[in-house]
């Protein structure tokens, strides 16, 4: 009992220390900005005020919400296509050898280079942003799914087959769950990739959205506005990541205690 209490207290200490680190950074920013006193480097409070004004003003509907929608839609499309293709490639050795070199090349493409192509094909709009997100976010999901699937213990598959599982039910009930820890690791990377690509695509030709807003604010010397936009993006990234971790913990609850030798969690 006392041990559990102590453990709770040290976890609390860790979390509060973590937030303290952030506070120290904010104070350092404030002091540095006041000391330098240049318009291109506004103080922390000015930037926070600008961020709050963005969230409460019309920018929320015109730019922030569309960006969130595009990111989520791009991520979901990548997840569906990436997991499906990854399962097939991971399960089928022939598919793996045939696609190996091609996928190696495609995933090393620096995605922002594809934005001009997407602009030519789709025009300047949200579809272009979503298409660009998919070309980048699909790879971490596909590769992690394929790795997770191909490293499933053959005994597990053989056992399932002995019990008469075939085709769809074999995939849904054995292959997918066994590969899911790796799939989730890939999904988490893909989520932050989606956010990164969303920003650069919007800067180059979104027509609207938070990335468009930030680069517009910079070009019209609305300096606190562009800092505010960056703060909103950082918070968005943090919120997405935290929500994802909650989702992952729920989906993989069955797995806790079966690996890693931790029973107390």
């Amino acid at each position: 009992m006392a041990g559990a209490n102590q453990k709770g207290r040290s976890a609390l200490l860790r979390i509060s220390l973590g937030w303290l680190g952030l506070v120290v950074l904010a104070v350092a920013w404030q002091l540095a900005a006041t000391a330098i006193g240049k318009t291109i480097f506004p103080t922390f409070t000015t930037s926070i005020v600008a961020a709050v004004r963005l969230v409460t003003g019309h920018i929320l509907v015109s730019d922030i919400l569309p960006s969130i929608g595009r990111t989520i839609l791009g991520f979901v499309i990548s997840a569906i296509v990436g997991i499906t293709a990854g399962l097939i490639i991971g399960y089928n050795e022939n598919a793996r050898t045939w696609t190996g070199t091609l996928f190696d090349f495609l995933r090393s493409l620096p995605t922002p280079l594809l934005v001009p192509i997407a602009v030519v094909i789709f025009g300047i709009n949200g579809h272009m942003v979503i298409a660009t997100i998919v070309t980048a976010a699909i790879w971490p999901i596909l590769i992690n799914t394929a790795n997770g699937t191909s490293s499933i213990e053959p005994t597990m598959l053989d056992t399932a087959k002995t019990y008469g599982l075939r085709g769809k039910s074999l995939f849904l009930r054995v292959v997918l769950p066994a590969a899911s820890p790796q799939i989730f690791a890939g999904l988490r990377i893909a989520l932050s990739v989606s956010l990164v690509v969303m920003v650069v695509a919007e800067m180059l030709g979104g027509g609207s959205g938070i990335g468009y807003y930030i680069s517009n604010a910079q070009q019209s010397f609305n300096i606190s506005g562009s800092y505010g936009g960056v703060i909103i993006l950082a918070s968005l990234g943090w919120i997405f990541d935290s929500l994802f971790l909650v989702f992952e913990r729920r989906m993989l609850a069955w797995q806790r205690g079966t690996v890693g030798g931790m029973i107390d969690a």
């Binding site: 220390l17 303290l20 920003v199 930030i214 562009s226 960056v230 990234g237 943090w238 990541d241």
Partner: peptide, 26 residues
């Protein structure tokens, strides 16, 4: 280590590309 925990959780998914306009300004 503990003091950088939240910072890391925030910076990890921060799109550094969003900083391009600010970097151009500075």
């Amino acid at each position: 280590d503990a003091a950088t925990e939240t910072l890391v959780r925030m910076m990890r998914p921060l799109p550094s590309l969003a900083l391009i306009p600010i970097a151009i300004l500075i």
